[in-house]
């Protein structure tokens, strides 16, 4: 039985403490960067579930990001429902699209599957740009609401007008989603995901309903990306079509692989590194895709398991192979 104070747990706790306290010491600009990192981390974590742990490479997650964002925008702005119903509706809609697209797409394997997801992302991008009546076309949507204040005991209310509040709101979801993915992956259900990612034919021969399991993974992954999209829309209050631009999905994938697909820390490390460092070096946004591409290329050739994967390999030699828990050591 793993001790409560294992190195990984302490590492995560420290990271959480830093994430919570950092905005209080740095200025508003850096906090907004952290918020964006948090949002993109959510997408990376969701993609990690599908690719890192179930072995399905999707280039289409920009679509779910966009669907989540626009669903919140459209429902919130045009239907005048309060934020919270619209928020949960947007999440549900993203999940629904994930489910509907997953059913046909997951029948295909290898490059076929990748192409369908890319095609889907392209279609969503085109529709978002073209269906001006619904989405505002190239002008996008404005006026996406912030979360409505939540009444608290002692006559106080939790307001979301400030950057700080939105940051903690986003962080809350990042932690929640990461925890859910962690639980999923370590469970017996998660074992079937990993089996599928290692050898889908063998998994099937052993009696695993691979289509069903892949669909579960895909739907949850889409749903979480939808959450990220809705959070982005709410924070920005303006949505423009480039949220659904297919290259976004590739940027996230790059972050995931550089950080380390198939590890819990990988998506967050990767997103942080690929976002924070260019910011710190004041690299022009137009250069970002170019640099991301180069970094991804270097990693896929020399360190395909990413930063977290590299560290894992380094420490694996020092660890004794105990069969702790479900066999996998720890979180990261």
């Amino acid at each position: 039985m793993k001790s409560v104070f294992s190195p990984e747990r302490i590492g995560w706790l420290l990271a959480l403490i830093v994430a919570v306290l950092l905005p209080l010491v740095v200025g508003g600009y850096l906090t907004s960067i952290l918020l964006l990192i948090a949002i993109w981390s959510i997408v990376a974590v969701s993609l990690n579930l599908l690719y890192g742990y179930t072995g399905q490479l999707s280039l289409g997650h920009s679509a779910f990001l966009g669907i989540g964002a626009y669903a919140l925008g459209i429902i919130g702005v045009k239907l005048h429902i309060g934020f919270w119903p619209a928020f949960f509706a947007a999440i549900a809609i993203s999940g629904l699209f994930g489910f509907l697209i997953g059913i046909p797409a997951l029948k295909l394997r290898g490059p076929y599957f990748v192409l369908v997801t890319l095609g889907f992302a392209a279609i969503v991008g085109v529709i978002v740009l073209g269906w001006t009546q619904l989405t505002g076309g190239a002008n996008g949507l404005a006026g996406v609401p912030r979360p409505t204040p939540i009444p608290l005991p002692f006559g106080k209310t939790l307001r979301f007008d400030s950057l700080l509040a939105m940051y903690y709101f986003t962080l809350f979801f990042l932690v929640l989603i990461a925890l859910i993915c962690h639980r999923l992956v370590r469970s017996l259900l998660g074992r079937t995901f990993v089996a599928i990612s290692r050898d889908e034919n063998l998994a099937e021969a052993l009696g695993i309903n691979t289509m069903q399991k892949k669909l579960i993974s895909f739907t949850i992954s889409a749903l979480f990306s939808g959450v990220a999209g809705a959070l982005y829309a709410s924070y920005n209050s303006v949505i423009s079509p480039d949220i659904a631009y297919f290259a976004r999905g590739m940027d996230v994938l790059a972050c995931l692989i550089v950080g380390g697909a198939g590890t819990m820390a990988g998506p967050m490390i990767g997103t942080f590194v690929m976002t924070a460092i260019p910011e710190a070096l004041q690299i022009v946004p137009t250069l970002r895709t170019l640099i991301n591409g180069f970094i991804l290329l270097i990693f896929i050739i020399f360190l395909p398991t990413g930063i977290a994967g590299g560290f894992k390999a380094l420490f694996a030699r020092r660890r004794r192979s105990l069969s702790s828990g479900m066999g996998r050591n720890g979180i990261a």
Binding site: R191, V194, L206, I208
Partner: peptide, 8 residues
């Protein structure tokens, strides 16, 4: 353990 997934 994975081998038992059919009865999961």
């Amino acid at each position: 353990i994975i081998g038992q997934s059919v009865h999961l």
